[in-house]
Nucleic acid binder design. Sequence first.
RNA 1: GGACGGGUGGGUGAGUGGUUAAAACCAGCAGACUGUAAAUCUGCCGCUCCUUGCGGGCUACGAAGGUUCGAAUCCUUCCCCGUCCA
Length: 420
Amino acid sequence: MTQGAKPKVEMTEHKFKPVEEQLAYVKKGVAEIIPEPELAAKLENSRKTGRPLRVYLGVDPTAPDLHLGHTVVLRKLKHFQDLGHTAVFLIGDFSAMIGDPTGVSETRPPLTREQVDANAKTYLEQVYKILDREKTEVRYNSEWLSKLSAEEIVRLCSKYSLARMLEREDFRSRLQNNQPISVHELLYPLLTAVDAVNLKSDVELGATEQKFNLLVHRAIQREYGLPGQVILTMPILVGLDGQRKMSKSLGNYVGITELPSEMYGKLMSIPDDLMWSYYELLTDRTPQEITALQRQVSGGKLHPMEAKMRLAEEVISDFHGKESARKAAEHFQRVFRERQAPEEAPTVKLTKGPAKKLTTLLVDLKLAPSKSEAERLIKQKAVEIDGVAVSDSRKDIDLSKPTNFLLRAGKKKFTRVLVE
RNA sequence: GGACGGGUGGGUGAGUGGUUAAAACCAGCAGACUGUAAAUCUGCCGCUCCUUGCGGGCUACGAAGGUUCGAAUCCUUCCCCGUCCA
C-alpha cells in the first residue's frame, strides 16, 4: 500500500476489466446498490490506480454450520474476488456475543466466548468451499472491538440518534408489542460500524435484512472522516417451505456440509416456483439462461421436475463435486421416484444378542427420537423391514443369529442392520 | 420508587379448583394422492411400562413454598417482562 508506486499505474491499467463489464458481473442477483453511481466511480478509480477495492462481508458465528442462505452473499463476495478485488471475510466473534437484533422479535441470550470460537472455526472451513482461500483476507472484529475504551464507545454513540435507531422495523414493532429491547441491542449496529471504519472498506455486502445496519456503517464511516462505503444487498433466500427465509431455527434449510443425497432430497422438495430464485442466487447461470429455462418449462417443453433436478445437481456440484452430485441424482431417482431401497444405506453392525423390541431398536438406531414415537410410526405403517410394512408395534426382532435386513422408518430414513 | 397488566406445550394463544397431557390455530411427523414438491384428504403429535387398554406410572403451565381429598387455576415469597407516573 505504498503511495509512491507511480510507475505501477500504467502497468496495472489492464489489471481490471472495464467498469461496465465488472458492473454487469457484480449486479447479477443483487437487490440493491446504494448508491449505485458511487460503485461505478469506485470501480473506475480502482481501475485507474490499480488499487483493488476492499469488499467485506461480516458474519456472526452464531451457529456451527453455514447453509445455502449464507452462500448467496458469499457467492457475491466471490464475484468481487474473481474480478481481482480484495475480499475481506470478517468474523464477528465479538459482535456475535451481542447478538444482531435484525429480524428478531425478542432479545436472545448472548453467546459465550467458547461457543463463538468453536463456531468461528467451523465457519472458515466452510467458507473456503466458496471463497479462494489464498486470496481471502480473514479478520476478527474482536481485534479492535475488545480494545475499545468506554470513552471511545461514548464518542461512537454520540454519532447516532435514538430516533434514527428506532426507525428500524424490529425495534419499532417490539416497542409497539410491548416486547423488551435491551440497550446493548442498540449498540450492535454502532459497534459493527467500527468494523467498517477499521477495515476502510469500499463496499460492504449483506442480505437485504442487513440494510439498516449497513447504512449505519456507512454513516459512521463518514463521521470518522472516511469516504463511506457502497452498500450492496442480496435478496434473502427463501427456505425449503417456500414461505419464510432459510434459517436453521426454522428447519427449512440445506446445510452446506450435508451429504449430497440429503441436499438433493431437500432441494427437490422446494415448491416449483421457488426454483427460479434458487437458480439466480445459487448458481452461476446468467439471467438469460435462467429466463430461457423458465420459458421452456412454462411452454411445456421441459418438465418442472427435470428443471429442478438440474438445479439440485448444479448446486450440489459446488460443494461436493460433479461426480457426487450425479450419484445423488441417481439415488433420488431410485428411492423416491421408483420407491426402491437405496443402493447404499447407512449400515449399522450389531453383535448377536437377545431379541429386542422393534421400538427399542428404532430408537437405538436413531430412526425415531423416542419409543412412543417409534410406536406411532409402526402404527402408521411407516416402518418396513426389507420392504414389508410391519403392523405389530410389539414385534420383537431376533438378534440371536447373524442376519441382515433393511429397516425403513418413514420416507427418508433407512438403515441396513447387520447382525454378526 | 409507586400504580397497573403479564409469564401456559416448538410458536401464537384459550383455560380461573376436579372427565386438563391442557381448546384452537400454526409448525412438525406418518399414510393416501403426485413429477420430487405444493395443494388436498386422513391420522398422529410429553416420556415411559406392559396384559396395547377410551390401561398404569412419571413429568409439565416463570421459581420455591403453602392451602386442599384434588391446583395451570387459590395464598405467600421470589425472579423476569411490559405500560404509565416519578
